[in-house]
Nucleic acid binder design. Structure first.
Length: 263
DNA sequence: AACTTCTCCAACCGCAGGGTT
DNA sequence: TAACCCTGCGGTTGGAGAAGT
């Protein structure tokens, strides 16, 4: 399905600018195109994408080349499943910045804004839909804050314990369990999206978030903030249980919403 | 096996902002 | 300072493959 935009220029006179535009390729990249782009960038570096596209002999727009490079060909692009750490960070940063995908991506080394955006749309938004709430609603933010993020932290914690090499943190931290100020949960509260009194970017470097996450003690994060958090009557215990893939649990989340968001 | 529906993600589009002429 | 170009961002789309019937 090689799509070529419009007519192709016939032999004879050199192609006009219009013809060149009309001859631009669109759609999926071929191996040859990838090779040409990689080769050119390795010799000349990236940037100035329009002229790069011309000089590399690619019948693509500069935009297309840039996108292909940044989202796919760059050597440091990470592929594969989003890890719990990354998921937690995405939820966390999205709660702070909203759909600022590129900004969020800066804190996930090797992940592209496109990938994070896709993750959000295909997983998180879909799940919000299942819960019949808007991703920007208080309800949804509460689910994120009180269910998903603790679950993720629990997973990370468990994984860390299994590896027996958590950075000296260990138990008791209870980042989620403390008062409302300054703890992990507070980041998601209210309708904040953007940096009022903006925290310095350094302040939310991934390393600080990791350490916060790893300090979390699963049992301490549950019963606080005056919210009803006793899920024992719901299948699949809320704290503990199978850590393999229970981030999304519509039943539990519906229960949570029913007991905390009666309308 | 054939068909339909769903999911995921690569790639496109339009727009905004910044730099240059 | 207006016009143009380039880059980057966020939203959206379309197709391939997986899953379901």
């Amino acid at each position: 399905m090689d799509q070529v935009h419009g007519k192709s220029c016939s032999s004879g006179t050199p192609p006009s600018e219009e013809d060149q535009m009309a001859d631009l390729r669109r759609g999926p990249w071929t191996v040859e195109e990838d090779f040409m782009l990689i080769n050119y960038i390795s010799n000349h570096g990236e940037g100035r994408w329009n002229s790069l596209a011309r000089h590399a002999g690619l019948k693509r727009t500069g935009k297309s080349c840039r996108l292909r490079w940044l989202n796919y060909l760059r050597p440091d692009v990470r592929r594969g499943n989003i890890t719990p750490e990354e998921q937690l960070l995405i939820l966390e940063l999205h709660s702070r910045w909203g759909n600022r995908w590129s900004k969020i991506a800066q804190h996930l080394p090797g992940r592209t804004d496109n990938e994070i955006k896709n993750y959000w749309r295909t997983r998180v938004q879909k799940h919000a839909k299942q819960l019949q709430c808007d991703v920007n609603s208080k309800k949804f933010k509460d689910v994120m804050q009180y269910l998903w993020m603790p679950r993720l932290m629990e997973r990370i914690h468990a994984a860390g314990v299994n590896k027996s090499s958590i950075n000296g943190g260990g138990g008791g931290g209870g980042v989620l369990g403390g008062s409302d100020q300054g703890n992990y949960c507070s980041l998601v509260g209210d309708d904040q999206v953007e940096e009022k009194g903006s925290m310095d970017e350094k302040e939310i470097s991934s390393s600080s978030l990791w350490s916060e996450s790893l300090l979390f003690s699963p049992t301490s994060g549950c019963g606080n903030h005056g919210l009803v958090m006793d899920f024992h009557e719901v299948d699949q215990g809320w704290c503990g249980g199978d850590m393999s893939d229970n981030l999304w649990n519509v039943e539990q989340e519906t229960w949570f919403l029913e007991h905390n968001h009666q309308t």
